[in-house]
Amino acid sequence: MKGKKILYIVSIILCLILLAYVAYPALTDGIDSVNTKRLLKGLLTLGALVAGFLKIWGRDSRPGGNRAHYERVFAEIIGRAFSDDKRKYDKLIDAIMYFGDSSYSKAIKILDNLYKKACRLTADYEAVMLFLGLSYSDSGNIHEAIEIYEALLNRAPYNVMALSNLGFLYKNMGDYDRAQRLLENAISVDSSYVYAYNNLAGVYYRKGEYEEALKYVDKTIELKPGLESAYSCAALCHKALGHTDEAEKYCKLYAVNGGDGKALANLLSTI
C-alpha cells in the first residue's frame, strides 16, 4: 500500500510537469506561439498518464487478498457459475473476496447487481444467491438472508447448502420445528453434508433432547473430525445429562481444535 501511495504522488507530479510543459508557452508568449505538434504530443502523454493513474486507482479499489485462495476455498459454492463469461465471473470473485474481508455492504452491492442483471443459468443464480444469503446473515441482516434462501429454494429446492443455512437461521430464531424439517431435507438430499448434521444436533440440544443431539454430534465428528462446534455441543449435552467426565473430555477437544476452552468450561459450570 505504501508503494502505491508513492506511485500516486509521482504520477500527480508528472501530470503537473506535463501540464506546465503544454501550457507554459501560451502563458508566457501568448496562445499564437504554441507549437501544435508540441501541444498534441503533450496532451497525448498527459492523457496516457491519467489513464494509467486511473487504472492503478481502480485496481487498488478492488478487494485485497489472493483470488486463487478464495476460488479454492469456495470452489464448491462457485461451481460452474459464469463459466461462459469471464467478466461476470471476476465480479463474483470480487464479491466473494469482499465477503471474506467482512466488507459485507460491498459484497452485497455486487451480488445484488449480478442477481438482477446477470444470472442466466441456474448455476449462476445458485452461487450468487448463496453468497448473498451468507453476506446478509453474517452482517446481521437475518430476515433478508431468510428471504434470499427461500427465494433460492423456490428455484432450486434441492440446494443442500441453502436448506442447511436456512435451517440454521430458523434454529437461532427459535423456530425449531421448521429448522428440523429443513435440516432433515438437507440430509435426505446429501447424506454426507456435515453441516446439516451439526446444525440438527444444535436443534435437538435447544429442544432439550440431548441423547438425540449426541447422535448427530457423533455423525458430524465422523464426517469432519476437528469441527469445533461439534465438540462444544457434545460437551454441553453430556453436562446436561450429568456425564461430567465426558463433558470435560469434549471441552478439552473443543480447545484443542481452536475453540475457547476457558469460556466453554465457564459455561459448563453453570449447567
Rank of each mutant, 00 (worst) to 15 (best):
Y21E: 01
V128R: 03
T270K: 13
W57F: 14
A145G: 04
A265P: 06
E248P: 00
P157R: 05
C15T: 13
L43K: 10
V256Q: 15
V128L: 03
I93H: 07
I93Q: 08
T244I: 14
I6F: 13
E212V: 15
A201K: 06
I17Q: 08
L241E: 10
Y205Q: 08
R72Y: 06
G226M: 08
L241P: 07
G259C: 09
D90T: 03
F82Y: 12
S188T: 09
N198G: 06
E126Q: 14
Y125E: 09
R38V: 03
L130M: 09
D90A: 10
A213C: 08
Y89H: 15
E248I: 14
G47I: 08
V34K: 00
A247T: 05
I187E: 01
E222C: 00
L54K: 11
E76Q: 14
R62I: 00
Y176A: 01
I12F: 15
K252G: 01
R206L: 13
P63D: 10
D60H: 12
E209R: 11
G133E: 07
G52E: 07
I56R: 07
K55M: 14
V160I: 10
E246T: 00
N159E: 14
L241Y: 03
L7C: 06
K91C: 09
S229T: 12
I142N: 09
P225Q: 13
L114G: 04
L214N: 07
A81V: 12
L19G: 13
Y8K: 13
V34M: 10
L18T: 05
C237H: 07
P157Y: 09
L153C: 05
D32M: 10
G261C: 03
I108Y: 00
L130F: 07
Y210T: 02
G79I: 06
I78P: 07
I187T: 05
L49A: 05
G133K: 12
G100A: 08
Y193N: 02
N165Q: 11
R120W: 00
F82W: 04
L27E: 05
Y231F: 12
N185A: 15
C119D: 08
A230F: 05
E228L: 13
V73C: 02
V189L: 08
L49H: 09
A196Y: 10
M129Q: 03
L114A: 06
L227A: 01
D177N: 13
Y89C: 03
N154G: 15
S232H: 03
L39Y: 15
A118K: 12
I13W: 09
